[in-house]
């Protein structure tokens, strides 16, 4: 049994607004083991990005972690003072973002930026750090890393920039990598390169990965476990095979049906009707009930808790298991 790297327990991230307190992340529990990838799937407004920022201790004010724990290898990150958190961030826990252009500083060379990240956590000579940075660039398969070291972000293509971001994130050999939509801004052939790279690097280093995406195809290709989020809640969690073969939550089924597929000739997509409710106007009961085709009277009153169906498969739905109820 491999070590649990991250264990999120009952995490609540709240924002106080004029419309009252909004829970962007609402009582979420998840965990990731060493060498595995947890895929978090959700549409915009589902709270998936806020969840990753909460883990990193980067919730933008006025947001705050209102409840719960984030256990990283036995330490509760929510209780750490900012200085200790800074030691961990970029060192033991790293993050890569969607937009590789805005995440890099345009007025510094990429080499400088990687060295800067290393220097924050290591006491080494500049020459030694430069060597390490070049090694990091080589690790992410950037051709002629010595030359690239002295180049500026605008001289690199989108795919190369994302490789630099990954090199920077992995330079300190973190235990956990949070990748927030790492390939969304990239073209499909470049996306394939980056996903393959992440897979290979995970096999080499044994890091745990949390992959946040809205693309079910990406999840199917790289995740071991999947959590589906809707309006701040995890509505389904299961090993990747089960999510794609027998999804239980109606929202997950709707997502599967909404996805255009190339291997199949479907004439009409099974779309989900309606839209995601805004966080200050959540419906009573199950948050998916206004869009759910299986909705019953109980769904409009009480919120279902995430309950285990089997050891590995958990669903938050009054109608689960679906085959017994409809």
């Amino acid at each position: 049994m491999s070590e649990t790297i991250l264990d999120i327990r009952g995490l609540v991230t709240a924002f106080n607004t004029r419309n009252g307190a909004i829970r962007a992340v609402d009582d979420i529990s998840l965990s990731v083991k060493r060498g595995t990838t947890l895929g978090i799937v959700g549409e915009s407004g589902s709270g998936k990005s806020m969840l990753s920022l909460s883990v990193m201790g980067l919730v933008p004010p006025p947001g705050r972690i209102a409840d719960g724990q984030v256990m990283f290898r036995g330490t509760d990150l929510t209780k750490l003072p900012p200085s200790r958190m800074r030691d961990l961030r970029g060192n033991r826990i790293s993050m890569i973002f969607q937009e590789p252009m805005t995440s890099l500083n345009p007025v510094h060379t990429v080499g400088f930026q990687i060295v800067e990240a290393l220097r924050a956590h290591r006491k080494e000579t500049s020459a030694r750090l430069k060597e390490e940075a070049i090694e990091a660039l080589r690790k992410v398969r950037i051709p002629s890393p010595e030359r690239r070291f002295d180049e500026y972000p605008h001289q690199l293509s989108g795919g190369m920039r994302q490789r630099v971001m990954i090199a920077m994130a992995l330079a300190c050999k973190p235990d956990l990598l949070i990748a927030d939509e790492p390939t969304t801004a990239l073209d499909v052939t470049i996306q394939a390169q980056i996903l393959e790279l992440l897979r290979e690097l995970q096999a080499e280093t044994g890091m745990a990965i949390i992959l946040i995406t809205h693309d079910l195809g990406v999840v199917a290709q790289v995740a071991d476990e999947v959590a589906v989020m809707y309006a701040g809640k995890v509505v389904e969690r299961a090993p990747v095979g089960q999510v794609f073969q027998e999804p239980q939550h109606p929202y997950t089924i709707g997502l599967m049906g909404s996805m255009p597929r190339m291997e199949e000739d479907v004439n009409r997509l099974v779309a989900i009707s309606g839209v995601v409710p805004p966080p200050f106007r959540l419906p009573p009961g199950c948050r998916f009930n206004p869009r759910c085709p299986f909705v019953g009277s109980e769904c409009r009153v009480d919120q279902p808790a995430l309950a285990a169906l089997t050891d590995a498969h958990a669903v938050a739905c009054w109608k689960a298991p679906l085959e017994d109820h409809v």
Partner: peptide
């Protein structure tokens, strides 16, 4: 290159 939505 398009990721196939089927983990199997």
């Amino acid at each position: 290159a398009a990721p196939e939505p089927d983990p199997s």
